[in-house]
Write a protein that binds this DNA or RNA. Structure first.
Lengths: 141, 141
DNA sequence: CTTGACCTTCCCATGATGGGAAGCCCTATC
DNA sequence: GATAGGGCTTCCCATCATGGGAAGGTCAAG
């Protein structure tokens, strides 16, 4: 089938399919005489695997690891679990970070009259930052 | 003071200060005879405001709005609250999304033996995606 | 006079995705 | 046969916020 059908069948856009091929996440497929990419059911299955991994928040790099493990019949499930565990930890860190923001913002918002007057505790907080030097937290590469 | 000092005093890297100037988030500053950027206390204060807004997760676009409101003595606090409320909603949406991922992943991980055997419910889930077409959710622009 | 620490501008990279142009191929319709 | 439309190809650009690094100017201390 052509890339458009593979896209519909997998839920991955044509653009992304080409990109995944370009970065080596998936193998180049066969081509028709017109130079159109041709996809088999197996290849569509791989695309669905990728889409599912992405929907669980795995990066393309992690997805590539999972894909390799999936295709390695002799894999150890411990390796898969390791990838998942790391990802869970990363998600939880980011969730906690955002929850901290929400907590602060809700407090400030609650204290803000939100009417026609100019006084605003939200702006006061932003303006009052007395402690300048905070090492920014780094993400996973 | 020079950009390096302003950076230390505000917690914003020199790179970012120049970038903020380039995109018009902050006004171009005075220059010394050597063409070095010169910063006043007020300008450092603005940089700290930006850093604080960023640390609460506001985008640079939102930060610009907040900055404009901060500098507008006749602002209505309702306008500020509106920006904050939208941002809270966005954060909460993203948190919920990630919590959903964590929930699924924890369940799958829990079911995975994580030893030397190849059987793995995590991979089975990824491979089993029976429902292809899911419209991806869009973020705020 | 050299060294090192600043500063300047300019270009490139990240991650994952979309937009769009220019051009080829095929089919259906007039 | 000509044309219109839709699908495919490659290539380039944009996003968002940030960092890395090169090439070169400036300044102060040794």
């Amino acid at each position: 089938m052509n890339i458009g059908e593979a896209s519909k069948a997998s839920g991955v856009s044509s653009k992304m399919i080409r990109y995944y091929e370009q970065i080596g996440l998936i193998h180049p497929t066969a081509r028709s005489e017109n130079n159109y990419r041709l996809y088999t059911e197996d290849e569509v299955h791989v695309l669905r695997f990728i889409r599912r991994a992405r929907s669980l928040g795995f990066s393309l790099e992690e997805t590539q690891k999972l894909l390799a493990l999936w295709q390695d019949k002799a894999r150890e499930s411990a390796a898969v679990k390791e990838v998942a565990t790391q990802h869970i930890a990363d998600l939880e860190r980011r969730i906690a970070e955002m929850q901290g923001m929400v907590k602060t913002l809700k407090h400030l918002s609650h204290c803000c009259s939100g009417d026609g007057r100019p006084d605003c505790p939200i702006l006061e907080d932003l303006a009052a930052s007395a402690a300048p030097p905070v090492k920014p937290t780094r993400r996973k590469h």
